[in-house]
């Protein structure tokens, strides 16, 4: 390459770089970071897209950082880096709600509001929470499971294979907590809990395959996410089960889950309303950044009933995740119906 060409190309690169920075800077009211815990299922990828869209719709620039595979120390480093850029606000879906506290305090001390998304940060003060409440999802799932067992047997009894996600993820442990709380009232239900490490679908498939081989009369399988349910369905088909032979319940409301409901394999999935959660952040963003306190009380976010309450750790917008079943699966209010082609 001749030196003249080199110079031309360099100049062009510099111009492009300047252009892009001015575009970013010129666009809007400032930068907002979203720190995602990982990108390993449809909930996370959708959440990132929806937050970015909602925040940019509100007139800000959104930068998304992913903490690898749920790496808490990486997320703290990313939080430090974000603080150094002096953004208008930082939205964080914490890998570890306790480990993140030091970073949260640092950001708030620097005058940057912190918004907890999807996962509660309860050990320190945060400016705003937009959460579904994973425990609540577990409670709702438990109630649905009790209802489905009662419909089938007249009384709540049977054997449940409960397939959790990765135990290092509070999403699944909180669901488990809520689910167990409900099931404690039904002594005739036997629950076997297993772990699908890394939320990996073939792990769930193998567990279901082995468990159903040893206990073919299992009544219900509860998976903590829809992509695990999809793998379990593949096993049910392999083993020659018909739709409805074993009741299948799940959580998250991914497009995959909605498809399984339409096909009749999945009886119910309890939504994790990421779309509404993202919208909830955008709704109150200007107030939070301006330091104004929005009125407490009932709101409707994306068509879903929600409530803004004051918790010891700050304001919390609690959006209830609804059970989705064959009767309401096509309702456009569910995020699973809003994404995809």
């Amino acid at each position: 390459m001749s030196s003249r060409n080199l110079v031309r190309i360099s100049v062009l690169c510099v111009l492009l770089l300047m252009l892009s920075t001015t575009m970013i800077a010129a666009k809007n009211k400032g930068i907002i970071y979203y720190l995602a815990p990982c990108m390993h299922d449809e909930v996370q990828t959708t959440a990132a897209t929806m937050i970015k869209d909602a925040v940019e719709e509100a007139g800000y620039t959104c930068r998304v950082l992913t903490a690898g595979q749920e790496d808490a120390s990486l997320q703290l480093n990313q939080l430090d880096n974000a603080i150094s850029q002096n953004p208008k606000a930082i939205i964080v879906a914490a890998v570890d709600g306790v480990a993140i506290c030091g970073g949260v305090d640092k950001a708030r001390a620097a005058g940057i509001p912190v918004i907890a998304f999807d996962r509660t940060i309860s050990e320190t003060k945060v400016d705003f929470h937009s959460v579904a409440g994973c425990r609540l999802i577990g409670v709702n799932s438990g109630n649905e499971i009790a209802r489905l067992l009662k419909e089938r047997y007249g009384t709540v009894k049977g054997t449940i294979l409960d397939i959790m996600g990765d135990p290092s993820d509070s999403y699944t442990t909180l669901i488990e907590e809520g689910f167990r709380e409900v099931m404690a009232d039904y002594p005739d239900v036997k629950i076997d809990t297993k772990i699908a490490s890394a939320w990996e679908a073939s792990n769930a498939a193998n567990i279901a395959d082995d468990y159903l081989t040893a206990y073919p009369n299992t009544d219900l399988i509860f998976t903590h996410a829809d992509h695990l349910a999809a793998a379990v369905v593949a096993i049910l088909q392999n083993k020659g089960y018909q739709k409805g032979d074993i009741i299948l319940v799940s959580t998250a409301g991914m497009p995959t889950g909605l498809t399984l409901i339409r096909e009749g394999w999945l009886s119910c999935t309890v939504e994790q309303p990421v779309g509404a959660q993202a919208e909830g952040v955008a709704m109150f963003l200007d107030d939070i950044i301006a330091g104004k306190k929005p009125a407490l009380g009932k709101y409707t976010v994306n068509g879903i009933d929600s409530e803004l309450i004051e918790m010891p750790y700050g304001l919390e917008l609690r959006i209830s995740g609804a059970p989705i079943h064959a009767g309401n699966v096509d309702d456009p209010v569910f995020w699973g119906n809003q994404v995809g082609k």
């Binding site: 595979q69 793998a231 593949a234």
Partner: peptide, 17 residues
């Protein structure tokens, strides 16, 4: 074969193997 086994795919498929 993994796609055959799970009749599809999900983003975390095969993780940890």
């Amino acid at each position: 074969l993994l796609a055959a086994r799970t009749n599809g795919c999900s983003p975390s498929l095969g993780m940890g193997l």
